[in-house]
């Protein structure tokens, strides 16, 4: 058994009177790609926000590499290498592409490390190099997604959490984004991938969880889930 990168145990999250997560548990092993599937409002984004410290759970724990980080501040969580690429990319629209990448490297104090990671991001995402001096808001949707991923790479992720990276992208771009995620994973970064596009996600994931109404209702290897009739029916577009 590989060591555990991320472990969520019995997470309860409430927004006012609404219960967003009910006793959700999941794990991501070192080096794994785990897909988190489910419909709108199932609690996928809340799960990621809880890990990154934007949302405080009412109960349960979040552990990163064995250490309890349930009450840690967002900056200290980023510093541990848990990097969250938010839904809708959230590019800094009037900052240039390069400045956006530099923002990703905000916690990185060592200039040599920063430069190496910037080079790596440009190498992996060559489109960004072409658009280096352009404002982030002027990029196309696919390029913005690449920028959001590049920004996360510069932070030096140990665990990369991506929220709906395929949203609003043409099928060809979805494949390109998924390929990039697989490349990043191949270099040793664990990935927690939230997707509505279950087909694309299960193609690159090792394992997956299905959540409904804030609860985990199903989990298994990507192959098992792809074959499961309930998943096929609900998320893979039926027969």
């Amino acid at each position: 058994m590989k060591t555990t990168a991320l472990e969520l145990t019995d997470l309860d999250v409430r927004y006012g009177g609404v219960q967003a997560l009910r006793g959700l548990s999941l794990t991501v092993a070192e080096g794994e790609i785990v897909a988190l599937l489910g419909n709108n409002g199932a609690g996928k984004t809340t799960t990621l926000s809880t890990v990154s410290g934007l949302v405080r759970p009412a109960g349960g724990t979040v552990r990163h590499e064995g250490q309890d980080i349930t009450r840690s501040s967002p900056p200290s969580i980023v510093e541990r290498g848990l990097i969250h690429v938010p839904e809708g990319r959230r590019i800094f629209s009037t900052l240039t592409v390069h400045e956006n990448l530099l923002m990703g490297g905000y916690p990185v104090r060592d200039q040599a490390t920063l430069r190496r990671r910037l080079d790596r991001a440009y190498e992996l995402l060559p489109r960004l190099a072409e658009r280096r001096a352009q404002q982030g808001g002027t990029l196309s949707g696919g390029e913005q997604q690449m920028l959001a991923i590049g920004r996360a790479l510069v932070a030096g992720p140990r665990l990369l959490m991506l929220d709906e990276p395929s949203m609003g992208l043409a099928p060809l771009l979805v494949t390109a984004v998924m390929d990039v995620i697989r490349d990043i994973n191949a270099e040793g970064t664990s990935v927690l991938l939230v997707e509505q596009n279950a087909k694309a996600a299960l193609k690159i994931a090792h394992r997956g969880y299905v959540i409904e109404n804030g609860e985990c209702t199903l989990d298994g290897s990507a192959a098992e889930l792809s074959a499961d009739s309930r998943v096929v029916e609900a998320y893979l577009g039926g027969v």
């Binding site: 967002p74 900056p75 980023v78 938010p86 800094f92 900052l95 923002m103 905000y106």
Partner: peptide, 23 residues
């Protein structure tokens, strides 16, 4: 500067800035 960049980033989107590890 790095600080100035962080200021501009917060002005645009404080939550995203928080996710970049900005205090």
């Amino acid at each position: 500067s790095r600080q100035g960049r962080a200021m501009r980033a917060i002005a645009l989107d404080p939550r995203a800035a928080l996710l970049m590890g900005v205090d």
